[in-house]
C-alpha cells in the first residue's frame, strides 16, 4: 500500500493552528503530493480545543486520523499535547510548545491542570514510546522575535526539522501564505524555532 504520512495538529482556539496547517499544506502541495487537510469550525473555536488533520502521500483517502495512526503530533499547548497523545503511533514524533493555557474547568477550580506533563513526556521519549520528542516554549521564542502571535510559526520551525522537506520550501510557503506586513517577523520566528532544537 502506498505510504501516507499523517500529522495531527492541535492547540487552543485563537493560537493559529489553521494558519500553521495552511503553511504546511502549501509545502506539501509544492512537492506535487496528494493531500487532505481536515478541520473543525464553529463552536470548536471560542477558546476550545482545536484539531486539524493533515495527510499526504501518493494517494490519500480518509481525511481523518484515528488513534495511534499519526506519525507526527504538533501541539501548540502542552495540555493539548497530553490530550492528543493517543493519536500518535508508537515511535512517532511529538513536537510541542511548553506553553500553558488553563481551560475553564481549571480556571474555576473544578479540575487541576496536570502538573507533570513535560517530565511524563520526557519519560515516554526515554523508553522509546515516542521516537522523537522536541519541545520549546514557542510563545517565548515568538515574543523574542517581536511577534507573540507567531508562536505557531516558531513551532512549525521545529516540525520542519523533522519532516523530509527542505527548509527553503517552508520559507517559500511562508511568503505565499502569510500577509506581507507580518512576513518578516514570521520568517524570523520560523528560523528561530528551526534552530532552537
Amino acid at each position: 500500500m502506498p505510504k501516507t504520512t499523517s500529522i495531527v495538529m492541535g492547540g487552543v482556539g485563537g493560537q493559529g493552528i489553521v494558519l500553521a496547517s495552511k503553511i504546511l499544506a502549501q509545502v506539501i502541495q509544492d512537492h506535487q503530493l496528494e493531500l487532505k487537510v481536515s478541520e473543525i469550525h464553529g463552536m470548536a473555536q471560542r477558546g476550545g480545543s482545536v484539531l486539524t488533520f493533515v495527510r499526504y502521500g501518493t494517494a490519500v483517502h480518509a481525511p481523518l486520523i484515528e488513534q495511534r495512526q499519526a506519525d507526527y503530533l504538533f501541539a501548540l499547548e502542552k495540555l493539548e499535547a497530553w490530550r492528543l497523545l493517543p493519536y500518535l503511533r508508537t515511535g512517532g514524533t511529538l513536537v510541542c510548545s511548553t506553553q500553558e493555557i488553563k481551560p475553564m474547568p481549571v480556571i474555576i477550580g473544578q479540575q487541576q491542570y496536570p502538573p507533570q506533563i513535560i517530565p511524563a513526556l520526557e519519560a515516554l521519549a526515554a523508553d522509546g514510546t515516542l521516537g522523537n520528542f522536541l519541545a520549546i516554549n514557542a510563545l517565548e521564542v515568538a515574543c523574542a522575535c517581536g511577534q507573540p502571535k507567531a508562536a505557531n510559526v516558531a513551532l512549525l520551525g521545529v516540525l520542519a526539522r523533522t519532516l523530509e522537506f527542505p527548509v527553503d520550501s517552508f520559507l517559500h510557503a511562508l511568503a505565499a501564505v502569510v500577509p506581507e506586513r507580518f512576513l518578516a517577523a514570521n520568517r524570523e520566528a520560523f528560523l528561530a524555532g528551526f534552530h532552537a532544537v
Binding site: 463552536m43 473555536q45 477558546g47 476550545g48 497530553w82 490530550r83 481551560p103 511524563a120
Partner: peptide, 13 residues
C-alpha cells in the same frame, strides 16, 4: 499518559 485521570476538558467559552 501516566495518570489514570483524564486530562481536563477544554470546552468552548
Amino acid at each position: 499518559a501516566d495518570s489514570e485521570e483524564p486530562p481536563p476538558v477544554r470546552p468552548p467559552v
